[in-house]
Design a binder for these strands. Structure first.
Lengths: 345, 345
DNA sequence: CTGAAAGCGCTAACAA
DNA sequence: TTGTTAGCGCTTTCAG
């Protein structure tokens, strides 16, 4: 320990305390100054800021959080970030939440209820200011009682669970599929299949319902052989289109639960020697980026994840500000975007 | 305030303290018991656990974090979750990190250095146990001095910045493109374009280098008119293919910086009246899920984001355990997957 | 305009 | 095997 050592030796612990000592002021002053509170003199604020910078101070949010009961964390629970629709949702959420100085704590759980339970519990332990989540396939009301009990402001996104008194923002799933059917009927189709959509998910149920209702609106008969429920994956789409093609009489068109399913279906069609947009009509749902670029370009129902994300963030922030708000529901309209995968019968 | 009120009245504050009082033991015992420490009697542990459960206790990680200097948070900074390659990376990271009881704190910054600065600073404030990030386009060494000074275990993923003494795990970008060129040359192509890849990114530079080196390896001449650098987006791919088609003599094939670029390029080709896999050959890079499903199915270089994510997590965890480790570099090999978008000249 | 002091909920010595 | 105690770094009265 020879002389000439400088202050940088123990720079591992730069706290308010350290700054306060260096400046011979109190930690209270430093705290206030750093947060720009105008109760401390402009000159002091400046000095504090400079020294903090110089000492390499970094705010400790755990400490602040413990003290204030605000973590500036928004937890988000979704099944799959790999699904482009949800990836986009996640992106928007991050943007929106970042704008008000909060950060996203992420948890994914596939479609497993059990993992969802674990993830939700862990997320809660970080004391997020709020949480936005998309209930896993098959979720039951009881899965969320402890979340509700925690009183953490929560908003359900895209999917809801029946009877849960949380905010919800989603799309008009029923109406979306209706639009798709309308379009196909206009094109002259009479035998229209429905591919994908889990009955254990609100989006699945609502889109399936949209299918049935639209059919009956057009005086078409519901045929169980034309519907292949399942997860919203490419794989399912590919397998399901094959199954549906076995029906007699054959369908001439299909609406899909999602674009991913539609992509799978178009591929399955090709395996069966058919081509979407020629021998068979396909309409997707979501309008992910890839949809416009496919060949044939996918006719689909646009669901606008950006709007979803924006509104979810707004709901959450207002609820954080005022937890007493009654639960709200926002259902965004879908819109048909006509491209090349659906053609006259 | 009539009688019959039960304990659930103020359930807002269930702390170790509260449990301890209820059981007439100390908070230390409760803490130990809840964490399953075998120093407390099995019977006590059980009692504590039951009461905690019953009272709706939820662990407060801010408090623990403050005390232990461990947050169980892994911060991740990336430019874009909407890019399927990075979405997949994110998904794997979440899985891996979850397995050892940590959670992901997410920050995105587009390709903006400035946003990256803000995001990194915020992430640090949560005192993550570690951080994995992909440097934004144009990042400079100086952008990370404060991260380095913070001594938070860090690993760079996919892209690295020259001279940064952090761990790195990425792909053999140079070799990947080389494989692509080899394939095209074997198919008889001599005029091969390169589309996408920013020079302000290690992946861009390395892939561009791979292009040049492979060309010269095959005795082909490097022609500036055949390379269109730019971001790894579909848009860029679509615009760039047009530009490259102006060259004289025309190229007969192109390697793309990424699958996204390749998708854009294939679309651009169509606009120009050409068809990939017939009149022109395209090879992508990444092998995202969509690549196999496109028409024509994309011949591409598989980069295995899952392996990347797994190794990054492993690097991080070992470094958290032992911060003194020297910086490591892991470069995963790429592999050619032949499909239908590249054909004989 | 600034300082002193208490306390958020937890864990880790150390003592009993 | 369990209890006592101090303290992590911050914010917030309340005094001065």
């Amino acid at each position: 320990m020879h002389g000439g050592n400088d202050e940088r030796v123990d720079q591992g612990r730069v706290t308010l305390q350290a700054i306060a000592e260096r400046l011979s002021v109190s930690t209270a002053t430093v705290s206030l100054a750093l947060r720009g509170n105008s109760v401390v003199a402009e000159a002091t604020r400046e000095r504090v800021r400079r020294v903090a910078e110089e000492m390499g101070y970094v705010y400790n949010r755990s400490a602040a959080s413990l003290r204030t009961d605000r973590s500036q964390i928004v937890a988000v629970g979704i099944h799959d970030v790999t699904n482009p629709y949800f990836a986009e949702l996640l992106g928007v959420l991050d943007e929106q939440v970042g704008e008000v100085g909060r950060s996203l704590l992420l948890g994914t759980y596939g479609e497993s209820r059990e993992r969802q339970q674990r993830v939700l519990r862990t997320l809660k332990e970080y004391r997020p200011d709020g949480i936005v989540f998309c209930p896993a396939d098959g979720s039951l009301l009881e899965d969320f009682v402890s979340l509700a009990a925690s009183r953490i402001p929560a908003v359900q996104i895209a999917r809801y669970v029946e009877g849960l008194a949380f905010d919800f923002v989603g799309c008009d799933d029923c109406g979306a599929i209706g639009l798709g059917i309308d379009h196909l009927v206009e094109l002259g189709h009479r035998r229209i299949a429905m591919i994908g959509g889990s009955e254990r998910t609100s989006t699945g149920r609502d889109r399936l319902r949209g299918y049935r209702e639209a059919l009956s609106r057009h005086g078409l008969q519901y045929d169980r052989a034309l519907v292949q429920t399942g997860h919203g994956t490419r794989d399912h789409g590919m397998r399901a289109i094959g199954a549906v093609l076995q029906a007699d009489p054959k369908p001439t068109a299909a609406v899909c639960f999602s674009d991913l399913v539609a992509f799978g279906a178009m591929l399955g069609l090709r395996h069966a020697g058919l081509e979407a947009g020629q021998d068979f009509s396909i309409v997707g749902c979501d309008d992910v980026a890839e949809a416009a670029l496919w060949f044939p370009a996918l006719t689909t129902l646009r669901l606008k994840p950006r709007d979803l994300g924006r509104h979810a963030a707004a709901f959450l922030h207002s609820r954080i500000a005022n937890p007493a708000l009654p639960p709200r529901r926002l259902v965004l309209p879908a819109e048909l975007v006509v491209r090349a995968s659906a053609v006259p019968a």
